[in-house]
Design a protein around this nucleic acid. Structure first.
Length: 289
DNA sequence: TCTATTTGACCCTT
DNA sequence: AAGGGTCAAATAGA
């Protein structure tokens, strides 16, 4: 099922619905909050069900719920963008004129650097959805980290991720993950602010479904056994203290859980419910405590 | 050897 | 000029 191209969506006039933008925004926030809660719940429930026959069903149900909310957010985003696009058209066009002309000048007169540096870096805040979660990578999507930066006045660095299928399927979805400053040294779980930008245009969840002919996996998927979810704790120092002495135990647990699920008849990588990284387990255990 | 992550540099917006 | 987002070479790990 393909998402609608925003350009193909009927233009829902904001003038017809003056409150639609704020309605969309609050709706998206609520859905995102629901996603966060479901994600947290899943992190609690699935490990407890690892030896249970109902594990698969429950995992699938969780994933279906998350898929539903993801699609709802996507639809809302597309709807909002189609509204905003009309409003922004003039403004964007002005910016674009300046951008293109300056780019042309630079490139035609011999670019000083890589021609790949053609992307705009600005992000419109209304293109994004943010949520707070103790398990920032537990969203059922596959992400690849492409950068990390220290943000001004923030204790913890911000990590930048893009969809794993960006190259293969030109999926423009990105997200940033940043640990909240006030979430260390307290009893409650470490919380992260996750901001999603853009929509997934890659096929289905993880692109896995398109590989039903998995006998001829391409070269890139040859490493699938190594990582079904390519995100992991990448903030050096951020989690070391919290992982502490329990890390080995947690790793063993994760390993055991993963092995248990490895031989299930369906592809667990779709859900990746038990592909917990150390910090996710840490967050989970703190959450449960 | 291949893929993912790290990290400094570059570039753009404000 | 500062801050933030992205790139890409270097590095790590399986």
């Amino acid at each position: 099922m393909k998402h609608h191209n925003s350009r193909c969506l009927p233009q829902s006039s904001t003038s017809d619905h003056p409150s639609s933008v704020s309605d969309h925004r609050s709706a998206m926030k609520e859905i995102a909050r629901g996603q966060s809660l479901v994600t947290q719940l899943r992190a609690i429930v699935l490990p407890a069900l690892q030896a249970d026959q109902r594990f698969e069903i429950v995992a699938q149900m969780f994933q279906n719920i998350l898929d539903c909310s993801s699609k709802a957010i996507t639809e809302l985003q597309l709807d909002r963008q189609s509204d905003a696009r009309a409003d922004d058209a003039l403004v964007d066009d002005k910016k674009r004129v300046r951008k293109i002309s300056s780019d042309d000048c630079v490139k035609e007169e011999g670019a000083t650097s890589n021609p790949n540096h053609q992307h705009k870096r600005s992000r419109r805040s209304d293109d994004s959805v943010s949520l707070e979660t103790p398990v920032p990578h537990y969203d059922g999507r596959q992400w690849r980290k492409y950068g990390q930066k220290h943000i001004n006045k923030a204790k913890h660095p911000r990590s930048y991720y893009r969809c794993t299928y960006r190259q293969e399927q030109d999926c423009k979805a990105t997200k940033t993950v940043q640990q909240q400053d006030d979430s260390t040294g307290t009893d409650h779980p470490v919380m992260y602010t996750v901001v999603y930008h853009g929509q997934h245009t890659c096929k289905d969840n993880n692109g896995v479904d398109s590989g039903t002919d998995d006998s001829e996996t391409n070269t890139q998927s040859s490493s699938d056994s190594r990582s079904s979810i390519s995100t992991m704790c990448t903030d050096p120092g951020d989690h070391q203290t919290s992982l502490g002495d329990n890390k080995q135990l947690l790793d063993k647990s994760a390993d055991l859980i993963t092995k248990n699920s490895m031989y299930e008849p369906f592809d667990m990588t779709v859900f990746a419910p038990l592909d917990l990284d150390g910090w996710e387990l840490d967050a989970l255990l703190r959450f449960r405590a």
